[in-house]
Amino acid sequence: MQLLGLFILSLSRESSIGTESRHPLVDADNNILVGLGGFPPDRNGSNWQRDVAKPAAEAMRAAAIDIYTLPRWMRKRYGRSSNRRGGHAAKSVGPSMGGGQPHPQNLSHTPRLLAIFSALFALKCFERIAGWGNTLFEAFSPDLFNYYRTKLTEVCENDPRIRLNFPLKFSVFSTATFNFGPATITLPHIDFRNLAWGWCSITALGDYDPDFGGHLVLWDLKLVIRFPPGSTIFIPSAILRHSNTNIRDHEYRFSFTADVEQSKFTTAAEHERRRRDKERRWNEGVKMFQKWDGPIRTL
């Protein structure tokens, strides 16, 4: 798959996502590589910013205060830290194959952290964010969506101890990551533990002006994307370097990310098998990308 000759349904180098600008970004072979999802339009008295984005941001703000005021012995491990994403606390929860597990299992956390996660997942606003991401994912990339759903179903059927963050009807993503900010500024990075051809769903939250900061930067594609609070975007985070720009001092920004994690720890035999299968698996995975057959505007 070539990343050159990139096209986008937009008229400017700096793209924008919001409720009226949901569109795909495709590669030179017309594969949908990135999905700019925005947020749902207001219907039947429901307002996404009022009912979902703002409550989710406030809940994360309260959780961040709890995270950053952990006892000192816990703060070394679970509080503010410098990681490859940035200097903020980033916490992942859900089934995973990272960390050396011999089989898929839920990531391990202290009871206090599990209580924080459970409280967030129980909120209607996060349920709606997960459901909106699910709907967009199926619309943008139905084959990849079905692959996620099938594999996660198999994992759950094989091990009843697996605990999902959301029921499958709300999300086919196994793992969620909370970037607790309070000014989530991620460094350029790739999520190398994620499925190579997989998508992750990123939802920006907070109180900031998207004209002055919080833009998503896709370095390999030389794109800067305006990313308003409450909006969702899908990217293949394991192969595209990404980060986001700074926000102003009086503002705050969080993000909620859903993805599928793979193991980075393998035996020698497994490593050799993966080496042999690498090209075949990649080619099969790329076939899951949806082809775009609509009008195209070049950058």
Rank of each mutant, 00 (worst) to 15 (best):
M1T: 10
M1W: 06
Q2H: 00
L3M: 09
L4E: 06
L6S: 05
R13D: 09
S15A: 15
S16C: 13
S16E: 03
T19N: 01
E20M: 02
L25W: 10
L25Q: 08
L25N: 01
V26M: 14
D29Q: 07
D29C: 08
L33E: 03
V34W: 07
L36T: 01
G37N: 08
G38M: 07
F39V: 06
F39T: 02
S46V: 11
D51P: 05
E58V: 14
A63G: 01
M74L: 14
R77N: 08
R77A: 09
G79C: 01
N83L: 04
R85F: 11
H88Y: 10
V93E: 00
G98D: 04
G100A: 09
P102R: 15
Q105D: 12
L107P: 01
S108N: 07
T110A: 07
P111F: 09
A115K: 14
S118A: 06
F121L: 15
K124I: 03
F126K: 04
E127P: 00
E127V: 11
R128F: 04
R128L: 13
G131Q: 08
G133F: 11
N134C: 10
F137M: 10
F140C: 01
F140M: 08
P142K: 13
D143A: 15
F145N: 13
R149K: 14
V155A: 12
E157H: 14
D159V: 08
D159K: 07
R163Q: 11
R163S: 10
F166W: 13
V172Y: 09
S174Q: 08
T175F: 05
A183F: 00
L187N: 08
L187S: 11
D191I: 15
F192S: 09
R193S: 09
N194D: 12
L195C: 01
G198I: 03
W199E: 02
C200N: 02
D207T: 09
Y208L: 04
F212W: 09
F212P: 00
G213K: 08
H215Y: 05
R226N: 05
F227I: 02
T232G: 03
I233Q: 03
I239T: 11
L240R: 11
R241N: 05
T257S: 12
A258S: 10
D259W: 15
T267D: 00
A269G: 07
H271Y: 05
R273D: 02
R275A: 14
E279A: 13
E279K: 15
R281K: 03
W282G: 05
M288C: 04
F289H: 06
K291W: 06
T298K: 15
